[in-house]
């Protein structure tokens, strides 16, 4: 996408005139065509209009990034301090709940997904959802070491061995 200076492309237009593309040059026609494409994409034009309006409004309404950053730092402190209470549930909530919140803030305000067309966020969420699907299909075999009519002896032995060793080392 470099703009090389030797391009003839730019030099063409005055010569090529208006007639060959009389239809092309009609901006209203174009706008309409583009609009149509959008409408189909969103399944309804109303949503499209709304999205455009949204984007327009957001031009003035970007959250102050420094403030977002300050909130993120505060959350970071909580996520480090939280586990010091040594309560397992609290650790999980502070560690992963806060990670989710931080990721949401970064995605919304830094990546500006809040003002991007909505299907972009959907596409990203779908790729995360596929990973959840992968986890759901795989975990019954890999995470579990015993199921209906089967046992993973190797994994069980390894867990036992490692825990015994850890106990011996005095953990």
């Amino acid at each position: 996408m470099t703009s090389s200076p030797n391009e003839t492309h730019e030099a063409g237009p005055p010569a090529s005139g208006d007639e060959p593309r009389a239809r092309e040059a009609d901006p209203a026609e174009h706008a309409q065509a583009a609009e149509h494409a959008q409408a189909a994409e969103h399944a309804q034009a109303a949503e499209h209009a709304q999205a455009a309006e949204h984007a327009h409004a957001a031009e003035h309404a970007h959250a102050n990034p420094v403030r977002v950053w300050a909130i993120l730092c505060a959350l970071l402190v909580v996520s480090v301090v939280g586990p010091m209470a040594e309560i397992r549930l609290l650790t999980l909530i502070t560690a992963f709940g806060i990670a989710g919140v931080k990721a949401y803030l970064v995605a919304k305000h830094f990546l500006r997904l809040g003002v991007e067309r909505r299907y972009v966020a959907y596409a990203l969420v779908v790729s995360v959802a596929f990973m959840v699907l992968f986890f759901a299909g795989t975990a019954p075999d890999v995470m579990e070491h015993r199921g209906r009519l089967w046992t993973n002896h190797a994994a069980q032995k390894e867990v036992e061995r490692a825990l015994k060793e850890a106990a011996r080392d005095g953990h």
């Binding site: 990973m131 986890f135 795989t138 995470m143 070491h145 994994a155 490692a162 850890a166």
Partner: peptide, 16 residues
């Protein structure tokens, strides 16, 4: 996602 999903299943499955 694939890497972390694999890690999480091992993390939960292996107490050690």
């Amino acid at each position: 996602g694939g890497l972390l999903a694999s890690y999480v299943m091992h993390r939960i499955g292996h107490a050690e």
